[in-house]
C-alpha cells in the first residue's frame, strides 16, 4: 500500500527532471534530502546535549595538544574522547532511527529512477520468468505491444526453473508485456526511454521482503505459480560515462547530501 502511494509520488516529484541530465535531478534530490535530514535531525535530537558532547570532544583534543609531553594526561584525554564519542553516537542514534525507514523508502524509489539505464530502440534484452516450483514445460506465451518485438523464445530452462524470451525495443514508450504462463495471465512493464523515469527490473512476488526491495511495480498475485518476472535493464551511470553500475547514483547521492548537509548546518542552526 505504501509503495502504491510512493510510486506516483516520486514519479511526480521527479517529473520535472525526466528529460534532464541525471546529475541535475540527483543534485536537487540530494539538496532536498540534506535539508530534510537536517530538519529531522534537529527535531529528533537533543541539540543541547549534542553541542555539549562535541565541546567535550574538542576539549579532549585540545588537552592532547596542550599536554603532549604528559603520557598520563594524553591517555586520560583519549579515554574521555572515546567515552564522549560513544555518547555522541548514542545521541545521534535517535534521529538516525527516525530517519532510517523513510530513507530506505526514498532510496528504494530513487534506485528505480537512477539505478538503471533505459532501453534504446534496437536494443535487446531478456524477459525472464522465475517459476515458483519445478514442473514440466509450462505453456508460455508473450504478447508484446507494438513498441517491443519478441526476438527469441520462449526458452524453457529447467535447470534454472525459468522461462525466458529475448525482446527488442522498437520505439520509445511505456509498455506492458502480457504473459500467459501455465494458464495464468500476467503483465510486466517495460520502458523504452532514456529519460529519468521509473524502471522496474523485477515484478516481485507478494512476499513482504520482495515488495520492500522491489517497490517499482505492483507485486504478482499471491499464490501465483510465478515467483518473479524480470526485464533486464542495463545498469545506470548517473550521467557519468564509464561508471556504469546500479549503485553509482547512490554514491553521488550520498556525497552530495553530505556536502549539502555540512554547508547548510549552520544556516539552519543544526548541530551534528
Amino acid at each position: 500500500m505504501i509503495n502504491s502511494f510512493l510510486r506516483p509520488l516520486f514519479d511526480g516529484l521527479l517529473y520535472p527532471f525526466r528529460g534532464l541530465h541525471p546529475l541535475v535531478g540527483l543534485t536537487v534530490v540530494s539538496l532536498v534530502a540534506a535539508i530534510g535530514i537536517l530538519y529531522v535531525f534537529k527535531l529528533t535530537s537533543n541539540q543541547d546535549k549534542l553541542a555539549a558532547v562535541k565541546r567535550k570532544i574538542h576539549a579532549g583534543l585540545f588537552e592532547i595538544r596542550l599536554f603532549n609531553d604528559n603520557p598520563r594526561a594524553i591517555l586520560r584525554a583519549q579515554l574521555d574522547i572515546l567515552r564522549h564519542n560513544l555518547t555522541y553516537l548514542r545521541l545521534a542514534m535517535v534521529p538516525l532511527l527516525w530517519m532510517i525507514v523513510p530513507l530506505v523508502l526514498v532510496i528504494a524509489q530513487l534506485q528505480f529512477h537512477y539505478g538503471y539505464r533505459g532501453l534504446d530502440p534496437g536494443q535487446s534484452t531478456l524477459v525472464k520468468v522465475e517459476l515458483a516450483a519445478a514442473a514440466g514445460r509450462p505453456q508460455a506465451i508473450l504478447h508484446a505491444p507494438a513498441g517491443v518485438a519478441v526476438e527469441a523464445g520462449p526458452a524453457w530452462l529447467p535447470a534454472l526453473n525459468e522461462v525466458a524470451w529475448r525482446i527488442a525495443a522498437v520505439e520509445p514508450g511505456d509498455y506492458e508485456l502480457d504473459l500467459e504462463i501455465g494458464g495464468e495471465s500476467l503483465s510486466k512493464s517495460v520502458r523504452v526511454s532514456n529519460d529519468v523515469v521509473r524502471r522496474s527490473p523485477i515484478r516481485p512476488s507478494a512476499a513482504f521482503a520482495d515488495q520492500l526491495l522491489y517497490p517499482a511495480e505492483p507485486p504478482l498475485p499471491r499464490g501465483s505459480a510465478v515467483r518473479a518476472i524480470h526485464v533486464v535493464y542495463p545498469p545506470g551511470d548517473a550521467g557519468i560515462p564509464g561508471w556504469e553500475s546500479e549503485w553509482t547514483w547512490m554514491i553521488v547521492f550520498f556525497v552530495l547530501s553530505m556536502v549539502f548537509a555540512f554547508a547548510l548546518r549552520k544556516p539552519l542552526g543544526v548541530t551534528f
Binding site: L126, K128, R137, A152, G153, P154, A155, W156, L157, P158, A159, L160, E162, A164, W165, R166, V232
Partner: peptide
C-alpha cells in the same frame, strides 16, 4: 549454457551477462 531441452535455443551466462541465443 542452459539449453532448452526441446527447442533450438539456449541461455548463455557469462558472469553477470546473460544472452538468449537461437
Amino acid at each position: 549454457l542452459y539449453p532448452d531441452p526441446e527447442e533450438p535455443i539456449a541461455k548463455l551466462v557469462v558472469g553477470s551477462e546473460e544472452r538468449l541465443l537461437k
